[in-house]
């Protein structure tokens, strides 16, 4: 349909919407099967010794298979965080929310998830509660389907 944009210029309104079926493969599937049992699983690289989470089928640096599965801690240290306060089309998580990179105990990389259980009514005040370096712990949903949102969020540990 031809309409006018905010500058008054003629535009064609168009949309592309395409369904996908994205394969999990054995490693991602096993990782999420662990989520159903409230377990966070990583894999260890036999070459460099690092434990990476989510579990990987191979080490991005050593390029060897990672077959050794380890259960890692549900608690971790906040490496970084930011408060999202704007929205775009199709955004999966509704703002405001706190995204965070968390170093889970027994792992060697940051794990991306949400920090929850924090008052977000004033984004300028979030920094008085959430601190880089603080400890957070996974809060699981009661009903789990084997996906990343089976963890509702990570909550600050008192």
């Amino acid at each position: 349909m031809i309409t006018r944009d905010k500058k008054g210029n003629p535009i064609l309104e168009a949309e592309a919407r395409i369904p996908y079926e994205l394969a999990l493969g054995p490693t991602v599937h096993r990782f999420f099967e662990g989520f159903k049992q409230r377990k966070i699983l990583g894999t260890r690289c036999h070459a460099c010794g690092r434990v990476l989470v989510p579990a990987r089928s191979f080490c991005p640096r050593c390029f060897v298979d990672m077959n050794e599965w380890v259960e890692v801690s549900q608690e971790g240290r906040v490496l970084s965080w930011a408060v999202t306060n704007y929205e775009y089309f199709g955004m999966p998580t509704k703002p405001p929310f706190i995204q965070s990179l968390i170093l889970l105990g027994g792992t060697d990389c940051g794990f991306m998830h949400l920090i929850g259980g924090v008052d977000l009514s004033d984004v300028d005040r979030v920094g008085r509660i959430v601190k880089t370096g603080m400890t957070v712990r996974a809060v699981w949903r009661e009903s789990r389907t084997g996906c990343i949102m089976d963890i509702q969020h990570f909550a600050p540990v008192d």
Binding site: W81, A82, T84, Y88, P92, P95, F97, Q99, M112
Partner: peptide
């Protein structure tokens, strides 16, 4: 793993 927590480029660079 990533997409539910992204907020475009501003999220990454703020972290």
């Amino acid at each position: 793993f990533f997409r539910p927590f992204t907020s475009g480029a501003p999220g990454i660079f703020s972290m």
